[in-house]
Design a protein around this nucleic acid. Structure first.
Lengths: 159, 159
DNA sequence: AGGATCGTCTGTGTAGCGCCAACTATTTAT
DNA sequence: ATAAATAGTTGGCGCTACACAGACGATCCT
């Protein structure tokens, strides 16, 4: 079509994302096992750290998982005191899920433990590039996960 | 430790990768259905396009999947003429797996179809940033997947 | 009081995938 | 030439992650 060498073919990162996530997850699984965590738990913890206190269904929306399965996931995390369920004062049906201090600490430990896995999978990238990658992923993941009004329970001013 | 604001906390992209891959995969699933493809097929096709002719076990190593499951995956793709299994002349036990023209075309179509999914998931990133992301992912995924000697069947000089 | 909503529990079904075992065709080593 | 290793295939078993549906109590909104 055009003489410009701008976009010769469609560049979709979906499959690459999938591929790398799998490679990472396989390594993470074994590295995380001694900590009693699975990759899936880390995703939840990461989202919770980023999102502050959210209701369970908000979490379900963010993680795009069925809410019934969120229950089990949170049970795991709460049993290990990594996460806390408090009833919302505004709406006592709701559980406000929040990372505990232990949770934040454990998440940090896990992230340290993941370094080796990341070294293997992202070995082709230099440190600066990895940081760029991280920043892009983080920003993409922090895309006002839910309609904003329901997600931010504690900060009604943010919107 | 240091006063520099360089690395206050560990930055692991593993969980983010996992999260975004999931979000992408869910959308891809429905978008790809009319094309008779699943996300997993796209990963394989993408790897094949990047890697040229590889043996099945090389593919298994790259995708980090059990080789018995590779068989079924390739059966799917070959049944749709997206992929071709030829016996290697050098070692007639081997199947050299290669993308057909139809396969390349179909992969391109699929990538176009994925645009909407990507728009939703990577909506927070500008086009230039998405391209950067793609490039980083692509390079990370192209990390001499196998020990190099076994992977490159057709090009024995490359190493 | 009545209806909707949030979370929980239970159960069912399915898909992805690892693992084991057996078998064939072929290559390599002895 | 015979034995051992390797590539692919098939079949089966089992586990895990999930989605989905139904029922229930607690709570909110009218």
């Amino acid at each position: 079509m055009s003489a410009l060498p701008l976009d010769p073919t469609e560049h979709r990162s979906g499959p690459l994302l999938d591929h790398l996530a799998r490679r990472m997850r396989l390594r993470a699984e074994s590295v995380l096992a001694p900590l009693g965590l699975r990759p899936r738990h880390l995703v939840a913890l990461t989202v919770l750290r980023a999102g502050g206190g959210t209701s369970q269904q908000a979490l379900a929306t963010t993680l795009e998982m069925d809410s019934t399965n969120i229950v089990g996931l949170l049970n795991d995390l709460e049993a290990r005191d990594l996460v806390e369920r408090r009833r919302s004062p505004q709406d006592r049906r709701r559980h406000v899920v929040e990372l505990t201090e232990d949770g934040a600490k454990r998440l940090n430990e896990a992230e340290c433990a993941l370094a080796s896995a990341e070294d293997e999978v992202l070995g082709a990238l230099e440190p600066a590039e990895r940081e760029t990658l991280y920043e892009l992923l983080r920003r993409a993941a922090t895309t006002t996960p839910i309609s904003c009004g329901e997600a931010l329970i504690g900060e009604p001013d943010a919107c």
